[in-house]
Each structure stands twice: as structure tokens, then as C-alpha cells.
Design a protein around this nucleic acid. Sequence first.
DNA 1: TCTGACCCATTTATCTTACAATTAAAAGAG
DNA 2: CTCTTTTAATTGTAAGATAAATGGGTCAGA
Lengths: 263, 263
Amino acid sequence: MADSLAENKKNQAGNVPSEGIFFQGRLHGALAHRLAVDILKGNYKPGDILPHQIDSVESLNSTRTPYREAIRILAAKGLVESRPKRGTQVCERSRWNLLDPEVMGWMFETTPTDAFIKALFELRLINEPAAAELAAERRRPEQLSQMYASLMIMKEETLHTERGRIADLEFHKQLLLGTQNELLISLNSSIGSAIAWSTKFKSSDPIGSRDSWPDHLRVYEAVADRDSRAARFSMEALVRTALEDTRRSQGWKTASLSLESHT
Amino acid sequence: MADSLAENKKNQAGNVPSEGIFFQGRLHGALAHRLAVDILKGNYKPGDILPHQIDSVESLNSTRTPYREAIRILAAKGLVESRPKRGTQVCERSRWNLLDPEVMGWMFETTPTDAFIKALFELRLINEPAAAELAAERRRPEQLSQMYASLMIMKEETLHTERGRIADLEFHKQLLLGTQNELLISLNSSIGSAIAWSTKFKSSDPIGSRDSWPDHLRVYEAVADRDSRAARFSMEALVRTALEDTRRSQGWKTASLSLESHT
DNA sequence: TCTGACCCATTTATCTTACAATTAAAAGAG
DNA sequence: CTCTTTTAATTGTAAGATAAATGGGTCAGA
């Protein structure tokens, strides 16, 4: 727990140039990551005050400058708020920037609650069918061909390989790009890390999890045909199937979401 | 342009405790704000390299520590990326965290493009009716009474006063809270600052801008009655009206959005 | 002569260290 | 109870040492 982040960083630097997500190479990134996970896990609860800079810094084998930068990162994402004399306080959960891609990623390092997963699928169920509808009307040839390419990779790799999952992400990304709406595109980068998690989770499940490829194909065809109604409908089916699979592999007892179908 | 931020801060500290949004009291906040606006305005374009830390620091009358914290804030929001030797580079627009409430706020300090406003209304049109539907099913008494209180204030204050606009924001916030979906709630804090802008803009428009109060009342009644279909329908009407007004006061020639009604 | 890999210097961000200033909460005096 | 003083925490300043990555140069091989 109180081991040296600085040393860890040094080792990492000697081995591989990019460890991936966990260590972003910089010390302040590692600090931010550690603190964020502690907050999201609930080790520090909203309203709690973090130990002062000097103490924290000593127990983490760092110095103040990187620590303060880490705090700034967390503050930028609405996780903490620091004021002189009071100290650095964890913000209320409602002020957290849950849609921030990094926060979303950190969230999934801690086995999120069922409520969170449901909220996420609700958000997908609201936005992705609508996005498919818009994409059917506005998509450009580039997006269409990229979607097709991803579709082909998905067909032969399935979701059990890394390449296959990347292709899945790429498919959704290109669909969002097709909407020509930069806010929906921005939403995608948040939801993307969530999809990555849920597909990875499903692919490790031996039993259930039907093949979602036909669903993707139908979405593609609808978008290619500029059939906005079919695009919405098939995307909704896709998300609902994904929800069902996740629901089953999580062993939820509750019924599915209460959102009506609006097609 | 190259005046002293440090002095400015000192003056401000002597006058009022909180200038509001522009100066968040701290120097790194002011630096981040200035740089962010420069980026969002397009003074620095994606791919551009900001001047070296040492040069920047001199021209801004600051020192390196606060400057670096400012850079960390911007990096946390996906606006820049800094690496040794290369310097600090402005990221591609698609990587910007547009849904971040602060970024959204900065966006509206620079008269955003028509495309951005349209994207925003599209997002509202997708999410808020669905949120109203969920809120109708799940809202608790607290949210209902808060919505009612806001509604009353809106009635007597209208959108021409600050209190009235705050009540408007509160109404939407409570509706989102009623969904019991923390991701939709998080979306609200982003959209909130946007609504604040558009209502303020409309209220300064002498001519058009119908009174949106009846629309709000209908939404409230539907949510109170737990009538999810009516809630969705009336909320969609409300957003479309707001869009129409904005469209008119902006003098757009283009037709309204192409999203179909799904009620 | 051209191509490629490898090594090295330079530039830049990053980290360390030490100290001064500001802020706001809390304690104390009138 | 109000006003002042104290005090503990973050914030800002300054400068030097470290480490990382790009770009260029060298050298070997085709």
C-alpha cells in the first residue's frame, strides 16, 4: 500500500515505453490514478479530507509538485476541491464528472455497482439508437467503409480476441462519427471504455452471451441504406441484447430497464 | 494581452472575495482559463505547440509551478498533451472533453458556432425527453416539491431576472435528479451551463422568445401524474420551443433539426 | 552511392528542494 | 457577542538537478 511509486515508475521506465493505461509514465499521473481509485472505491468518502500535502507526499515517496499536479487533475474532474486551511476535500458524488473518459475507466477498475451499470445501459439505450438514426441520414462514405472494415474483422476474430474487441469499439466510434455531432462523438469516448469493459466481461463468460455480430450487421445495413427508422430499431435491439447478456452474466434478479421502445 | 495576471489576482483579492467565474481565486485557475479560451477561440489550433514553459511563464508574470498546474488541468480535459522534448501540443478537437462543464462554460465565452449550438440542442432533444419519461416513473416527493417551487419562482420572475433563470436551471436539475440515474444527472451539469447561456441570450432578445412557462407547467404536471408518455411529449415540446426561439434570435436560415419525434 | 540501424547530444518537460505569502478557520480578548 | 489575533493549511516563488524523447549524425552493410 505504502510502497514507493517513484521506484515503480523508474522500473517501468526501464522496461517498456508504454505500460498502457495504469502508469501514464509520469509520476503525477500515477499519483492521480492511485488517489482517484481510492476515492471511487470509497476509501475516501465525499466530505472526507485527504491528509495534508506534506504527509501524503512522504507516504507516497514523492514530492509536493507532482502531488499538487495530481490534485489539480482530480479537481478538474470534480472529484476533489482544495482550499487553504480546510484542506483537500472529496466532493459530493453528484459533482463528479462521471462522463469523463478517464473517470469512467477508473470506475471500471473497481467492479462498479449494479446501479452504475444499469445507469450506463440506460444512457446507451437513450443515445445510441438516436445516434444510429442520425448517422443513417448523415454518414459519409468514409464512415461507412470503416464500419464495414470493422464488421469484417469482428466476423473472423469474434469478441474473444483483443483485435475483435477493438474492431467492435471502432464500429461504434465510426457510427457516432457519422452523426456529425461533436457532442455525441464526445459522449462516445466516455461510453467507449465502458463498452470495452462489458464486452471483455462477457467474452470471459463461458456460457451465455449470444453472438452480437448479426445485430451489428443489421445496423450497418440500415445505415448504408440511409434507413433511419431501421437504424434506430436495430441499434436499440443491439443494446438491449448487450444489456441482457450483461444482466445474465452478472446474475441480476431485477427485470430489464423500464425505458419504453420508441420506434 | 500580456498584462500581469499576478497583479490582477492581487487586486481582485483586495476587492471582492469571489469575482465569479473568470477568476477562480487561484492563479493556476486564471492561467488555465486564459489558455483554454485561447484554445477554444482558435488562437492556438490543434497540433500547435504552446511556447515553452519558461517563455510562457515570463510573458504571463507567473512562475512555473502554477503554470504547470494549469497545463495539467487542460490536459485532464483533453485539450492539450505535453511530453518532454516535443512540448505542449493542442490535441485534436475530437479528443476535447466537450461535455466537461467547465469546458462547456468556456465554450460559451467565445460565441460558439452555429454547428455547436445545433449539436447541443440535438443532445438535449435526445436526452431530456427520455429523462422526463424516467423521472415520471421514479421521481420522489422531494424532487416534485422542488420542481414546484422552481416553477412558482419562474412564474413571477420570468427569465428576465437572475433569480428566474436560476429557478429554470433548478427545475431542469430536479427533473434530472428524478431519473435516479447518476450519468444523466452528470450530463445535466454540462448541459446546465449551456441552458444558462441560451436563456440569457433569449432574454436579451426584445422581440421573439415566447413564454416557456406553460411548457414547464405541462412537464411538471405529467411528472406529478406519473404519466411517462405525457412527460416525454411535453418535454420534447419544451426543448423544440427553446430551439425555435434560439434559432430565430440567431437568425438561422436552416430548417430545424432532422430528429423525428418518437412519442 | 544508397540504405538502414544505432548512438549521442540537445531540448524540453519533469522532479526536487527550500522558503515566502495568502487564506480562512479557530481561538482568544475586550 | 464582536472583533482581533493566532495558526494550520494550501498557494506561490525560485532555482537547480534529473530524465526522457526527438533529431541528427555516424558507421556498417548492400
